[in-house]
Amino acid sequence: MLENLERIQIISIIGSIFFLFLISKLIRKNMLKEAYAILWLLFGSVFLLFSCWKKGLDYFASIFGIYYPPALLFLILIMALILVLIQFSIVVSSQNDKIRLLTQEVALLKNELDKTQQKNSPQASA
């Protein structure tokens, strides 16, 4: 699988490993939630796999009818980016809802609190 490494393969293997290492480090430091890292790790691994296993890339490219095998990498990359962006949109939408609910709840509670404080303050001073 690793015989006759070409220069581009070595570069891409190092790149993929560095990418996976970066993602793991971010998870370890609690800067990235595991749930949002799954897609990054998945596609990082796919890139590492195809960097090592060049024949595999040629094989899958021929299955899809792609004449120029590296174009398959671009396809995978674009799909990965689209998936991650959709995931972000979902997260943003759900956070939007949560922030709205929290804001409303805080406003209503603050109103209740003010009312309770007003009710209690004359007794406290008496």
């Binding site: 922030i99 709205r100 804001t103 409303q104 805080v106 406003a107 209503l108 603050k110 109103n111």
Partner: peptide, 25 residues
């Protein structure tokens, strides 16, 4: 009037809904 202050701007929808929640409560 009773005034309820939303800590951040939610847009008309979020503001009206706050009022409806008050009405519901």
């Amino acid at each position: 009037a009773l005034v309820i202050d939303l800590p951040v701007n939610l847009g008309v929808g979020g503001a009206v809904q706050t009022g409806l929640k008050y009405a519901q409560n």
